[in-house]
Design a protein around this nucleic acid. Sequence first.
RNA 1: GCCGCCUUAGCUCAGUUGGUUAGAGCGCUGGAUUGUGGAUUCAGAGGUCCCCCGUUCAAGCCGGGGAGGCGGUACCA
Length: 520
Amino acid sequence: MSKSKKSFRPKARVPRGLRDQSGAQLQAERWMLDTIAGVYARYGFELLDTPAFEYADALGKFLPDQDRPNEGVFSFQDDDEQWLSMRYDLTAPLARYVAENYDSLPKPFRRYQWGPVWRNEKPGPGRFRQFIQIDADSVGAPGMAADAEMIAMMADCMDALGIARGDYVVRINNRKILDGILETDAEISPTDPASEEKWLTAMRALDKHDRFGWEGVEKLLGEGRKDESGDYTKGAGLSRENIDNVRTSLSAAFTVSGAPSSPSAQPSGQLSKYVPGDIDKLVDRLGRSTIGLQGLSELEEIAACLAALGIGSDQVVFDPYVVRGLGYYTGPVFEVELTFEAENEQGEMARFGSVGSGGRYDGLVEMFKGVEVPATGCSFGVSRLMAALEALGKTQTDEGQSPVVVLVMDKERIADYLVMVKELRDSGICAEMYMGGSGMRAQMKYADKRRAPLVVIEGEDERAVAQVTLKDLILGEQLSNEISDNEEWRSGAQAQVSVPRAGLVEGVRNMLIRIDGRQG
RNA sequence: GCCGCCUUAGCUCAGUUGGUUAGAGCGCUGGAUUGUGGAUUCAGAGGUCCCCCGUUCAAGCCGGGGAGGCGGUACCA
């Protein structure tokens, strides 16, 4: 305070990319987690929790090194100098858990899990360095039914959250189909050392279709692309002919061309349900690629399962541009996208995009066990879903959490006020006595800020006639909005009633019911 | 990581060719209006002009460096 003392005072600020969350927001988030967890549990998954950090080598790829221990992940050294890292997702810890407890677990092991994860990367709007994920995975499940279940479950979650059909879509793909297309149309393959780099770049290019459109993808498949800020991204260097071939194959998935194919020509009657384009043509294009055809046949299996699970084409659609993480997913991949637009904080119309994703990763547990353990899973990003639900007005908050405030009109009578709050609490009503030191006006302001539905007033006047005054703050606010022209606000008696002191609980309950009824 | 823009009160922002005590609105705190939040009115608190170095008699303003924020882009489990 005084300059002579020069006391050090830390600046009160939350670290960048992190945030505080308060009451209503947390309640909405809890409701969302409960809703999704409820769906997962109904599908038969069991709950698991693992620690916030792991030995760094157990988290796989992003190993810290001495120079940059916090690149991507947050890391620190234990007393024995072993590196520990904060988990950056829930899948790597699951793989560690399964490997560590392999013999005692039921196979397949089907678990769900939610909790915060940390990533040390540049924060953006709706992107934080700590955020919550909620995942479900089947480990040791080789069949496509397990993948189909994930897809169906994600769609079910969106329904359960109250997001209308058409406002979301689960886009599904199989990475083997893309491998097939790149193999036949561009002669590149991930297993061929000569073209591995091209394959990576090409896959990344396709992944950007939703942001840049085909025009941008084409540049990235070819020479490269310059962005708005003038930054240049080097492309995969495919030839004009190769790029055109890739486009022809991809477009078969979206558009029906030539003569309509006979239904009997399709091996599965269900795949066409989820593919907006021409399956025969796609088969034709992939003809020379065994991996491509395998991908397609896996997709057929998934489609059959989805149909059996009652999933409609208004929920799930095939989209060959879904790529997801490279070097991680091995087959089917999918993501949930919100398709509606909503006004953001700046008043601009914005899309929310992908709020969840998943896919098959048959190589992850192998990292620990040395044997391949097929696995598939899905994950929702809770923060982005929250933002979207808020925009839709679909968040559920429990308004009953705001307390009834008992005013302290007479500091000599605090025991009396404590008796009142106890009576209210004993009958299940959230209530508190004002614990500050200020006068009545400040107490009203306090109650207002707490969004208290009503206040209880017992001053000299009330006590003289063994009554209490109950003031409906919500009705009072409405009245003041409508009639605030003159200075009749001072009459103050609006929106309040007197009840006998002995009928406090009943009076409060009745007023709460009236408030609840008004708010529908 | 790379590119561009930005940084003055809690918030949104003024601030002249460099010139004395840096302002407004909203918000906040307190008072008035019999014992009442939202009306009216009066008053008050609140600033390292992002930080450091430099130029100058003099820097919120000019120069250099750094940090932080925003928007792209790259990487991404």
